[in-house]
Amino acid sequence: MNVLVVGANGQIGKMVVEKLQESKQHEVRAMVRKEEQVADFESKGITAKLADLEGSVADIQLTMEGVDAVVFSAGSGGSTGYDKTIMIDLDGAAKTIEAAEKAGVKRFIMVSSIASNHREKWSDDMKPYMAAKHYADQMLEKSDLDYTIFRPGMLKDEPGTGKIQLGKETAIESIPREDVASTIVSALDHSNISRQAFDLISGNTEIKEALNQIG
């Protein structure tokens, strides 16, 4: 499967790209917004395409030629203002969904955020970010794409355990970024999770087994 990672220079995105490059089942392509990022990925033998989520749908669509699946792991980051949250986490996601439909891509994996589907759980300082994730997820759910939405808990910078808890509703707990990336890569081979959304936190079940258990 040819997989485009949008937000490939982000923390989760980089891990997804690396794991896809190591896999024997998939070919990976990184979408980035800076020329130096293209050069960095290409120096590692990874195909990279230049496009900006604040640019046009057509430019994003061009990066999807020959692509079977898209992973959207882009984010504006904690150091930017709410304007970038809207333009990247919401409008950027919407443009990517539209581009995927126009390009004939079917498989789409979205990295969202835990509790984005429950307004009553949004803290005041996180409301703009959560609202962006909430409506981006809704757009994907209303699309014709074969989507899976993962809503990770609080992200940790520590080695993955390879074990997760996956469910429609879980406690608001944490998970290493590496386990999120591993779950995304494994999910590409699981048709049983099509057109569904899941909370994703650390747990006691091996990733593949957790995905296999979904009915």
Rank of each mutant, 00 (worst) to 15 (best):
R119C: 09
D125Q: 15
K133S: 07
S113E: 14
E42Q: 13
M110R: 09
K34R: 13
R33Y: 13
Y129Q: 12
E36R: 12
A115W: 11
F41T: 01
T47Q: 12
G203H: 03
E169Q: 09
V185C: 06
T63G: 04
M1H: 12
A115E: 14
I97V: 10
A136D: 02
D157P: 11
D189P: 05
V70W: 02
T161V: 07
E178D: 04
D144G: 06
L4D: 06
K102P: 00
G162D: 01
V105Y: 00
I12S: 07
D125E: 13
D146R: 10
N2Y: 08
Q196G: 03
P128A: 11
V5S: 01
I164N: 05
T161F: 10
V67Y: 04
V38D: 03
D124L: 14
I184V: 12
P152E: 12
S112Q: 06
G162F: 05
G78K: 11
Q37F: 10
E173A: 11
K84S: 15
L20P: 07
F72H: 09
V57C: 06
G10Q: 13
K163F: 13
V17P: 06
L50V: 03
V16Y: 01
F72D: 00
K19Y: 10
T183V: 04
R107Y: 08
D89H: 14
L50K: 03
M87F: 15
S73A: 14
D189R: 05
E178I: 07
A30F: 12
S182H: 09
D179P: 08
A48L: 08
V111K: 06
A48H: 07
K24T: 11
L145M: 01
Q165P: 04
T96V: 15
A100Y: 00
K14E: 12
M31I: 09
L155S: 04
K102C: 00
D125W: 15
T170D: 08
R107G: 02
S116K: 09
L155C: 04
L211M: 03
I201S: 02
M154L: 15
E101V: 02
L188K: 06
G45A: 07
A51I: 08
S113P: 13
G162C: 06
Q11G: 12
A210Y: 00
A74P: 06
A115F: 11
K14S: 13
T170H: 00
L200S: 02
V185W: 05
M110P: 05
S174I: 10
M31L: 11
T170I: 08
T63S: 06
K102N: 04
K121D: 12
K208F: 10
D91P: 12
T161S: 12
G10P: 09
K34H: 15
S116M: 06
N192T: 00
S112N: 08
E209D: 11
Q11D: 12
E120V: 10
I97E: 00
D144H: 05
K127V: 12
I184G: 04
E27M: 15
G203A: 03
R119W: 09
Q213Y: 00
V32N: 02
D189E: 08
L211C: 03
V180N: 03
E27G: 13
S113N: 15
D179G: 10
R177E: 01
V185G: 04
A99T: 02
S191D: 04
D59R: 01
I172C: 11
K95V: 08
